[in-house]
């Protein structure tokens, strides 16, 4: 049955690439964990589990533009105090 109901997929091929660092990881305990899959995680999720990767001084090196956008969408706005993704200034 063809369906018009599409869930957003959250699966990625596990190619098991032996890449120690895709991101310049600062925490030595994370090295060797083969986290090449981080590039496919949503930006807000990376912000939750690795706050150091989304530090504004290095975020552009660590995350892809899409991940940065995803991360920023969930930041609490200093102006309105909500997760408004910058839309409060448009009101």
């Amino acid at each position: 049955m063809d369906t018009n109901l599409q869930l957003k997929p959250n699966l990625m091929l596990d190619l098991s690439e032996k890449v120690d660092k895709f991101f310049p990881l600062y925490r030595p305990e994370l090295r060797g964990q083969n986290r090449q899959d981080l590039r496919y995680l949503p930006g807000d999720l990376i912000g939750e589990i690795y706050p150091e990767l989304v530090d504004r001084r290095c975020i552009k090196n660590n995350l892809t533009p899409e991940q940065i956008e995803e991360y920023e969408q969930y930041l609490v706005c200093e102006l309105c105090g909500r997760r408004c993704a910058g839309t409060c200034v448009l009101d």
Binding site: D2, Q6, K8, N10, L11, L13, D37, L45
Partner: peptide, 20 residues
């Protein structure tokens, strides 16, 4: 068989979308 990983398991669900 296809080996995959879930990129965002926060809701406890991996979602596979099959296409033609």
């Amino acid at each position: 068989p296809v080996n995959m990983f879930c990129t965002d398991p926060r809701d406890g669900q991996a979602r596979l979308v099959i296409t033609s």
